[in-house]
């Protein structure tokens, strides 16, 4: 066991995957010499050499496209997109190509790549460094989209994403990269490269971050700890027991966990940082109303970012869901 931040846990996963399977390669902007702008890839160049850790030009279409080609030739590439907004030049490669190789080849040649994206606001970054583009990928058939929130989930889910034959978009909430430490087992969560793949639950299930029966807050990423804090305050303010569900898997959804949380609590708030319109909260809300509407005591409500481009950092605290806004939303659902 070691006490690790999310960054260190991701770094551990990369070391372990590359150690266990020499088909694993990593490419991206500044991932080798610099060790990544967030140091997620620190130490890898020294350990595995420049044929497996590749510094690329600033060209995301080229990075993703190269990774797809490497994958079709039998490698297992991991791509780092340096910041969220930088993924858009590579959007065509991800959506039109990576997502479709399995279908186009009748399952014979999936593009087995992992696209790691540090995303989201709250780090006082300049413009174009704070988007939450996860809904754009979750809507695209052929991609898996996941988002860990704890260091040990980050380690286990990244190993599973590398092992998974499908392209996985791996969203890393950069605001909580170093928010806290957790004991992470250095033992592998499953046997790498034995041909059986990763356990499916690592890329398809939600996690209960806090138990409760009066209200369910369904969220993911950097708003998970904020929701837990809001839940604690709701308990002391007014004796409300709030369950916090960390989605972890953004596609596929853990429909079972979402619907049973809704049925159990009867009141649901969805929280995310991305713009509200056509964000993941819309799908969570629609699913619940489709399947378990009669168990609800109030409509599913959403606390989200706003339908404007992510603001400059001087204004980002007004844009991001805060504990106060989450509590306000929760009180609205509770008092409905």
């Amino acid at each position: 066991m070691a006490s690790l931040t999310m960054v260190e846990a991701l770094n551990l996963a990369l070391h372990q995957a590359m150690e266990a399977d020499d088909r694993v390669v990593l490419l991206g902007e500044d991932v080798a010499q610099t060790g990544g702008v967030f140091r997620v890839t620190a130490g890898l160049l020294d350990r595995f050499g420049e044929s497996r850790i590749v510094d690329t030009p600033l060209a995301e279409a080229g990075i993703v496209g190269s990774a797809i080609g490497m994958s079709l030739y039998g490698l297992l590439p991991i791509v780092e997109i340096q910041f969220d907004v930088f993924v858009y030049p590579g959007f065509e490669q991800i959506v039109t190509h990576a997502a479709r190789y399995a279908w186009r080849s009748k399952g014979e040649s999936p593009a087995s790549i992992v696209i790691r994206i540090p995303y989201g606001g709250g780090v006082r970054a300049p413009e174009l460094h704070s988007d939450s583009p996860e809904a754009l990928f979750a809507h695209v058939p052929g991609l898996k989209v996941v988002c860990p929130t704890t260091p040990s989930d980050a380690r286990d889910m990244l190993l599973a994403a590398i092992e998974d034959p499908d392209p996985v978009v791996f969203m890393e909430p950069k605001r909580i990269y170093r928010a806290g430490r957790e004991e992470v087992s250095e033992e592998l969560p499953f046997e790498i490269g034995n041909g059986h793949g990763a356990p499916a639950e690592l890329l398809s299930t939600a996690r209960v971050a806090r138990e409760g029966t009066d209200l369910a807050i369904i969220t993911y990423g950097a708003t998970v700890p904020l929701s837990v804090q809001a839940a604690d305050e709701l308990a002391s303010d007014r004796g409300i027991q709030t369950k916090v569900l960390d989605l972890r898997s953004l596609y596929p959804f853990d429909i079972e966990a979402i619907c049973s949380a809704a049925s159990e609590c009867g009141r649901v708030l969805v929280v995310h940082e991305a713009p509200r319109h056509a964000g993941l909260g819309a799908e969570v809300s629609s699913l619940i109303h489709e399947r378990v509407m009669l168990d609800l005591h109030a409509p599913v409500m959403r606390v989200t970012g706003f339908d404007v481009p992510f603001p400059q950092f001087a204004n980002e605290d007004d844009y991001l869901p805060s504990v106060a806004r989450i509590k306000q939303g929760a009180n609205k659902v509770l008092d409905w």
């Binding site: 799908e283 809300s285 629609s286 489709e290 599913v300």
Partner: peptide
């Protein structure tokens, strides 16, 4: 369009928010 996160998700969510009962 595919159902998951299609336009219908937002329309459905807003209907629920405003007129569930």
């Amino acid at each position: 369009d595919n159902k998951f996160l299609g336009v219908g998700a937002e329309v459905a969510a807003q209907i629920a928010e405003n007129a569930l009962f």
